[in-house]
Nucleic acid binder design. Sequence first.
DNA 1: ACTGGTTAGTGTATGTTATATACTTACCGG
DNA 2: CCGGTAAGTATATAACATACACTAACCAGT
Lengths: 274, 274
Amino acid sequence: MTDKKLFGYKYPHPAVAVDLAIFTLQESRLQVLLIERARDPFKGRWALPGGFVRIHEDLDAAAARELEEETGVAGAYLEQVGAFGAPQRDPRERVISVAFFAIIPSDTIHLKSGGDAAAARWWPVSELPKVAFDHAEILEQARHRLRDKIRRSTIALRFLPPEFTLTELQQVHEAILGQELDKRNFRKWLTSLPYLRATGRMRRGGQHRPAELYRAIAAALIKGTGPTIGDDYSSTDESSIAQAYQRGYQDAAREFAAAMDSTQRDLMRRVRPA
Amino acid sequence: MTDKKLFGYKYPHPAVAVDLAIFTLQESRLQVLLIERARDPFKGRWALPGGFVRIHEDLDAAAARELEEETGVAGAYLEQVGAFGAPQRDPRERVISVAFFAIIPSDTIHLKSGGDAAAARWWPVSELPKVAFDHAEILEQARHRLRDKIRRSTIALRFLPPEFTLTELQQVHEAILGQELDKRNFRKWLTSLPYLRATGRMRRGGQHRPAELYRAIAAALIKGTGPTIGDDYSSTDESSIAQAYQRGYQDAAREFAAAMDSTQRDLMRRVRPA
DNA sequence: ACTGGTTAGTGTATGTTATATACTTACCGG
DNA sequence: CCGGTAAGTATATAACATACACTAACCAGT
């Protein structure tokens, strides 16, 4: 960018950044993407991926851009966690960070490293290293949000490809809750909800009994704060697999269409008496 | 402040503001405080109170400061709703607003008008005027948050003075949910929770049967994101009544003390099986 | 082709929570 | 002392959550 020109304001302005807690499932464990910082401050420490918001860029768009830069995935689920703005959270200057969490399906894994990242890798949330800035707090809140939402929304589906087995879905829940669930009760609960459809196809190739493949019905796919699935994010080669997933999701996405926003949050809740 | 000096940055920085949805209960209705804008943009329109975050000021502190400037109330419940940053949300320059909602007890009402507000008044949320900027969206999200939390936390208590009747508490719930509740079921639910204590005293002076006064036990008072209750906010005269409330709350606040944060959110939720 | 190992898949009984519903008590004012 | 109004109280039913154990299907190795 410009080298010499300064942008001047009558009052001091903080910098505004986005930071992302990008979650996925690997080895049946909840994992989060961290980058190793190549520069000071916190050189050598692991941190959440993120970057500054451009001056005419929406916050959601900045988060989506960072997500794609880091993982090659466009159109993943994104949700804002909140703004973090302790005065000394960044020693360089005042930085307000708007934190997001993202979910990418378990086998859509494409890490690019570059820019300010020396390395990037997935960390199981149960074995996190010491992280830079206030990222521990951001992670804490993001995980909290995830735990809170998993029973009351269909967010778990975002960890899986368009077709999945019920055991896989159960593993998502277990990984997020950090707790084993009873198979029969879990399935009874699932089937009491109007969000899954058996495809009739089977996942074969394991060494055991084949499992039936399921698919979410359209309206079940909770929308994130980010750009709508299918929006065009000048996708790079690396995101082709991600796009395949999206096509799958979109494909599934033509049955209900309706007032999903309200339904989502009342998923497991009765309305109170009149 | 400085008149001539400009603050320069290598890259353009947005301004960062806080906006507050300040709720209270009046006439058994949920009300929100709006100010009439004295200046452009949106001169003459009603808007949420708010202001810019100072360069070394925490976001929570900025929200608490604006709340006190506007209402004279210090130590009220404050919770961040999120960051709103659409590029054109403010026509003057890029402004990222971090929205909060606040709850002040129903009879702690002290409006100051000054600064950029021509007038300030409470509006029932069911009769809101057209508001400036993206404040309709902020209000929407704040109310959503409130509805979502009321059953799962003790946030309703924040609308009431330290001693209250069960009917008053029920009215808080009804106002927030926009729905009448059954008295017997509501009371059964309340008494199944370990958060209220009858004082033995009565609210007399009505023309009807006296109602027993209740009090929240200490740990039941959910903490906001803002400064802890009792923190010293160089309180003005106008906040003396507010302080009386706080003393009451603090007084009640010495019984449990424990791991309330987790308890709060599991208030009405069982843990899943092992 | 049979066996052992492993995952998929299924039902029932019990406890807990939510909902629906009506009458009595206490105070005030006239 | 009567009418009006808010406070206060219990029971029966429906919905949901939890606890719990066996059979079916596949693969690999003999």
